[in-house]
Every structure is written in structure tokens, then in C-alpha cells.
Write a protein that binds this DNA or RNA. Structure first.
Lengths: 142, 142
DNA sequence: ATCGTTAATAAGAATATACCTATTTATGGC
DNA sequence: GCCATAAATAGGTATATTCTTATTAACGAT
């Protein structure tokens, strides 16, 4: 099972340092039961580090995303993207409601990545991908 | 074959109005042989409408995207997303180079949308989706 | 053609995100 | 534990994107 510790260890293995702010950011994401906006995350970090800059939050989210440890939800409408931990390397995708903004997790990745990589291997080295469904939930269907 | 006219007609059918600025934006996208950033598009529109606001460009891109007539490239790294016309309703996706930012079109959509829609039909009405591959092209592989 | 309604626009303000630089600090080697 | 090095940070600044409001103009109905 993944934990804050294992995540920080993974970062370390990739050459990143373990800073208190970064640690706190991961903890907050870990403890949250819903995806958070950068803004909300910043507010929560400030409870412990009053002087933490918003840029630090953005930098760490980007870093965690590059490391494959955090996924970003709501790619299209760029209104306040939200972030969540990518638990156990098991990458997944989301169904995002265009009404209320809620997201639900999709159980499986609908893309055969290996095949796609192979298809373009000569001209491209594929490293990752993004996929999202958009629509309206029960409450917002009207 | 799609044309600027047919695109504007489609917009009209959806209740949008035909304004000179909007017309010019579609024309420019139509004539461009590569996807454009909002900024670049704005510059080009200004050649005819010196006072056009950047907001008008953003609004129209969003409107065209919602209408399914324009697709946005580079969803992840929000550094300078680029836009292109979605020709003939034939939606497609992109492989984006994280080095130089170049994008190549993927021939087919790897997602069985009908199946996914059906899978979630009771709780969600799926309207559209986003998919992108990321990686490095030949020149940027180093 | 004119009128009334309402979407679209321009301009400026507000917000979100990215960049820059000097300073701090984590970390590996001694 | 101490030092040197380079990454990370805070704070300020620049840029990108969205929002607000008053005004303009497209379009259907007359």
C-alpha cells in the first residue's frame, strides 16, 4: 500500500529533495478525500507554513505530475483544475461533470498504450497520456 | 467538404450569431496550416480589427470548442495551448512533443465512446472526451 | 426598413499561473 | 558534525486567462 513515506521515497529516488513544504503538500493530498485546487491546497499548507508561496504549490504539483504521482483533473475547461494523488502507480482517468465540476473515477484505462507506443515508436517516444470524459451527472442533466 | 461558410452555418444553427470578428477568427484558423496559440490568433485578427480584444479571441475559441468545431492541443502543460479547426466533424487526437511542442495527428480515436457512454448512461450523460499522447519526437529524444 | 431583444464586443479590472533572483537549506562526501 | 553544491523556497514581478460592465450590433418579428 502506498503512503506518504513511499511517495517521498519515490521522489528521492528520482533525485528530488525532501523539504518540509513538499512533505506537507503530499500529506494534505494524501489525507484529502477529494481532489483539491492549487488554491485550496495552498490555503491548507499555510496552516503549517504561513509564508509558503503559491508558486511553491504550483511547482510541486507540476513536479509530482511529472513524476507520475499526481494526476490533474479537468484538463479542458481550465477553470480551477484539481489535483489528486495517483495511488499505487495505478493510473486511472475521470469522468468530469461540466455542470457541478464533480469527478468520478473510471475503473480502467480505455487505451492500449503499449500498442500506441509501438505504432509510433520510430518517430516518437511516448511517455504518458491524458484521457477524460465530459458530461453531466444526474443532478445536472436538466 | 467543410468550409468557413459551413462552419459559420453550423454556428448559426446552434443559435450563435455571425459577427465579423468571429468570422475572421474562423477564417484564420481555416487558412492556417498549423495550430495557433490564442496570442498568435489575436495578432492575426488585429490585422483586420485593430481594436479586437484578447478576450474576444478566448471567448470564441471556447465557444468553438464547445460547438465541437475547434480542438485544443496540449491540454496538460498549460503553456501556450494551441487551437485548430476540427475539420468535417471527424474528431481526432494528437501526439504532443514535450520538447519542442510540435503535435502530430493521430489517425484514429483509440476510444470506444459508445461503449463508455453506455457503461455510465445511468449516472452520467457523456458528451465528449479528451485524449492526448505525450512524448518526445526524433529531434528531442536526447 | 424599423424596432426590440439579447448576444457579442471592448476595455479595464481581477484573478490565476508562470517567471526571475537572491537567499535558504537538503544532501552527499569528507 | 562540517562543507560545498545545487535544488528549493519566498517574494516580487510578468504574463495569461477570466470576469464585469457599459455599449454596440445581429437578427427575428413586425
Amino acid at each position: 500500500m502506498p503512503s506518504v513515506e513511499s511517495i517521498l521515497r519515490q521522489l528521492k529516488d528520482k533525485g528530488y529533495r525532501r523539504t518540509p513544504q513538499r512533505e506537507r503538500i503530499v500529506e494534505i493530498l494524501w489525507e484529502s478525500d477529494e481532489p483539491l485546487t492549487a488554491r485550496t491546497l495552498h490555503e491548507k499548507v499555510k496552516a503549517v507554513f504561513p509564508h509558503v508561496s503559491l508558486d511553491t504549490v504550483y511547482r510541486n504539483l507540476e513536479l509530482l505530475r511529472e513524476a507520475g504521482l499526481v494526476s490533474q483533473i479537468n484538463l479542458q475547461s481550465r477553470e480551477s483544475a484539481r489535483f489528486e494523488l495517483q495511488k499505487e502507480g495505478e493510473h486511472h482517468h475521470h469522468l468530469v461533470c461540466l455542470g457541478c465540476g464533480d469527478a468520478i473515477c473510471l475503473p480502467a484505462c480505455p487505451v492500449d498504450l503499449d500498442q500506441l507506443c509501438a505504432q509510433h515508436a520510430d518517430e516518437f517516444t511516448v511517455t504518458n497520456h491524458a484521457f477524460e470524459l465530459y458530461g453531466y451527472c444526474k443532478d445536472c442533466r436538466n
